[in-house]
Structures are given as structure tokens and as C-alpha cells.
Design a protein around this nucleic acid. Sequence first.
DNA 1: CTGAAAGCGCTAACAT
DNA 2: ATGTTAGCGCTTTCAG
Lengths: 327, 327
Amino acid sequence: MDVAKRAGVGRRTVSNVVIGFPHVSEEVRVRVLRAIDELGYVPNRAAQHLRTGRSGIIALTVPELGVGYFGELANLIIEEAAARGAGTIVAQTHGARARELAEIERLLALQPDGLITSPLGLTSHDIDSITQRTNVGIIGEHFAGDAIAATAIDNAAAASDVVAHLLDTGRRRVAFIGGAGVPPRFDALRRAGYLSAIAAHGIDPITDITVSDFTSSAGLEAGGRVAARIASGGSIDAVFCVTDEVAIGVIRGLHDADVRVPSDVAVAGFDDVPEGRYSTPRLTTVSPDKKAIARRAVDAALGGTGSTDAIGYSLAVRESTAVSPPA
Amino acid sequence: MDVAKRAGVGRRTVSNVVIGFPHVSEEVRVRVLRAIDELGYVPNRAAQHLRTGRSGIIALTVPELGVGYFGELANLIIEEAAARGAGTIVAQTHGARARELAEIERLLALQPDGLITSPLGLTSHDIDSITQRTNVGIIGEHFAGDAIAATAIDNAAAASDVVAHLLDTGRRRVAFIGGAGVPPRFDALRRAGYLSAIAAHGIDPITDITVSDFTSSAGLEAGGRVAARIASGGSIDAVFCVTDEVAIGVIRGLHDADVRVPSDVAVAGFDDVPEGRYSTPRLTTVSPDKKAIARRAVDAALGGTGSTDAIGYSLAVRESTAVSPPA
DNA sequence: CTGAAAGCGCTAACAT
DNA sequence: ATGTTAGCGCTTTCAG
């Protein structure tokens, strides 16, 4: 460390200045800073990491990066981490347990300070064992019966709110299009919210139109089935989709079958993805407070306290559930 | 290193085994491997990094992550890097030079092995100076007159192809909607391709409808202007948009003004983003070989040779340029 | 083919 | 308030 010599001080003092330790005289501080500047000194991360055990890097896994909800969330997480001085290494899992495990293993081998993951297939046992290895911020749901708290909104309540909105605007035959997940996975929670809102209005649920994954492609196909159901006399006048991704596909599938949205069928989604803001028609959806989710997750990954109270959300009412078609 | 003792060999030998150095007797190799396994030994990345100077991490900047072209490209880059054993730290620049510079600085401070960047605002001088500091893979264009080769398709040729398609299907009043970039930035190249195709057919160009950035929101607004132009008697029967993002916004803007796509106006984009595959109508676009781009960029960031020949592309003809409306 | 030992550049305990 | 020094865990010369 030539900086020390240049400034005529000891290495210790230089470290103190760099780290921002308080007890350094102003004069010395300035001298050291100038020396650092003149020499173009940049601390070596590898050495810092080796010495302190902190790499300044967190790992993030999402099901899919280039798309919708997790893409936007990843943005926010990366930015929140950057604001706290950390870099973010990203990996995609495509939502399957084996891949999730493999990617997490790969990321952990890079020895980050913490991990943020939004598991779709992991068991609570998987999560447990990862939690023992590093700081973990989970995005998604609680895993029932464990001490594992995740960062999420109240999915059931939010789902119930959208469905109530559908009902309030006069829709009566409201179908839920979702997956076969079991609680506490988000799709099960959203279905539960749907069921409770439907039950509160004394209406029969329609839950037999399902998707095998949460892609627009699956939604497209499901939309076709909705249209077929209608064509064969089974009235449906609204659809609540488990995610916006699916909803966008459903709208497309309905359109292909000449079913009009929203005049024939209202469609609502969940997540408030960017695509839904420019789609035709614009998509009514639940908008979670993604910034808060990002903040909480980064905090957990960096070893923060990890509060557990639910994240806020709001309802974004747009064209796809309008009562009369938008001119 | 207890592994050495456990296996009854020296540290050197252990290192050799781990690294895969050839001259180790099979017996010893097995013994070391077992010792490693029994002790659950994992090499410390920080120490490796400190010693070798290689972190096994590359940095990536994209304008926007959760959206469209760069989202999908980032996916592919991350996967390609993973296949080569490297992690990828990601940052978003939102396309402005100052932010690009700042993010690159931040990433470089993390001391990755290389950097992949898709600059929108950087000057060739900026790029030059970054290239001197680390391995760089540029996604985008050549920066004219420099030794800086970037990974990209032949934008002008591809743009010319789409416009030719528009012309071939009978459109005559074809507008270009793009930015005010100068060569060699991609928007300028795409405009040049448009102009040459138009000129080849002896038709007058329409280039005075511009967007200030490449977002759907800017496109939405531009779509409104196209509609206004038509309403006031200025005939336009096709639009070639500088990116799919913009095209999706334009379609939406036209729709809002009751201009039908494709029956009134055909719309084509560029990039083949996922959204365009499920939009209404599905978007005709240029589809670059993104895998090849990713491979080349990762190679450059990892210090590879960096070939310079152009990347392939194809034309994805879909509904938005159909001659008669779909059904 | 294998063992010993020297650092990579930094931080933090210890001493002054 | 500042200087000295011992490692963090690894790779790699240098001898054997």
C-alpha cells in the first residue's frame, strides 16, 4: 500500500479513512484522500472479501427474467441492492424444483453474501436447508408451519378484492383460471381468495379451467377453452386469471375465437406487469407494492432483521373489466 | 488445508487434483477426492480470486431488464455465462449516457473478469477507455472508424428486408418511426435500411414521425400522431418501427384512434420480443439470432478472440402486416 | 510426481 | 490518533 507512504501515514490510517472510521483528524483524512486520488488507488475486492468474508454481492434467482412480474421485480431488487452498495448475480430457474436447486447451488458456489429466491417448486425443507447456509430472502409465500417468513402480499385478500370488483360490476359467471398448486403456493392462495369472494355472493364457482404453467402460451390455450365452453352454452362472463401472463394469453385466445373482451367476457389478472399496461385491452389487475418487496428481500439477503408484516397492494382497474366497451 | 493431511499428500497435490492437472496418479487422485468429499471442502472463491486475479464473474449492463429485447438477451447471456462457469452481475442503465457510465463504474468497482454492455448513449471514446480497463463485449453496432467491433446483425440490411416485405404486400405509403440517433447507432442504421428499400421502389419516404426514446409509451404517442396524420388526409398505409417496443405502443395508439391494424395500417417492428408473439395483432418483426449474440458477447467478456462477422437474422411475418385482416 | 514456503492486498487486533 | 503485524485460503514457484 503505497498510499500510506505517499500520505506519510500507516496502513491502518488509510484503512480507517477508506472505511470511514470516525477518529481521524481532518488534515490527515484530506492528505490520505489526495494520495488515494493521485495514485488512482482502488481497493482490491478479492483481498477485502478474503479478509472480511463479505463479497458485496448477492445472488438472485427468478423463474424468468425477461418477462413480466419477475423481470420488473428483478429490476427493483438490483437497484435496491446497488443503493446499498451490493452487486446482484442473477439466475433463472424456469420454475422447476430441480433447476431451482441447481441454480441456487451454482450461485452459492460463487459465495455471495446472501440469496434472494422466488421459489416455485422448492419444498419448505429445501428452503430450510438453504437458510442454514446463507442469508436468504424469500419472495413468495410463507411456507406453512415453518419459521420461514417470506415477503409477499396477502394473495388471498387481493384475489378476493379483484373478484369482488368483477361481481360489483355486474358479472355473475366468474371463472378462475389457475394452476394446481397447493397452499401455501400463491396460485392456491389466489384460488382461495376467488372462492371466498364467490361464496360471499352466493354464486357457484367455476374452477375447472386450468393451466399447467403460468405462461401466456398456457393462457392462450385456456382462453380457447373458455370460448369453447361459451360456444357450447356454458355461460361465462368474467375470468380471473392467476397471473397477468396467463391473462394476456387468455385475452388473446378469446380474441382468436371471436369472443370480445370486455364486452362478452371481462378478464382480470394479478401482478401488474408492464405488458398489461399497453395491451389491448389494458388489463385490470392487482398491483403489489413491488418496491417494498424488493427492499425487504434485499434487506434479508444482506442479513437484515426481516420484518414479516404483509406488503401492500392496490387494485388497478383498467379496460379489460370495463362494463361497456371502451368506445 | 486439512484435505492435504487427510489424504496424506501436500497442498500442491490437492490443488493439482482440484484444478485437474494431468500428472497425478489415479490412486492419489481418488484419495484426495474422497478426502475433499468427506470434509465437505469447498474452495474459497475470495482466496482464489485474490491469488489468480480471476473472479469468475462478468458484469452486464442493459438499458432495461424486465422488458423486451434486452430482457430476453440478458437471459441468454446469463445462461451462456453459466455454461462457462461464470456468474453474471446485472445493472440497468435506462439508456442514458451518464447512467451508463455510472453503472459501468459501479460494476467495474466490483472487479469482474469482463463486461458486456449494450450502450445507447456512450461515445466511441467512452467505449475505448473502458476497453482499456477490462475485457469488453459490446452489443450493438460498430463504432465507426474504430477498432471497436460490436456484436450485432446487419441492421440496415434487415430493416431493408422488412420494408421490402411491406412494399411487396402492396403497401405504398410506408412511414419510418424512429429516433434521432446518428450512425452507427442502430436506429440510424435501421432508418438507412428503410430509406434504401423505399428508394429502390421509387417511393417517397416519410420520416418525420419520431420518438424520443424506444419505449411503448413513446410509441403510443407516435401512433396517435400517425392517426392524426391520416385523419387530416395524409395517407399512410404502413409503419416500420425502429423497435418492437415502439411498435407495440404504436399499435396501441392507432387502436385508440380507431385506426385498424393491419387492415388500415400495417405495422412492423424489429427485435422479435416475446410480447410481440402474444400481442393483438401479433407483430411482424426482424428476429436476430440472439443466442449467437449472447455467445459472442460472453466470449469477448471472458477474454475470447472476438470474431467480427455479422450475426444472422430472419424475418418473422405475422398478423400485423397481413394484407387482409385475420378472420 | 510431491513437499515446503512465499506471497496475493487487505483488515483488525494489538501496541504505542 | 496512528503505527506494526498477523493472518484470511489459495496458487504457484522452487526444491526435492
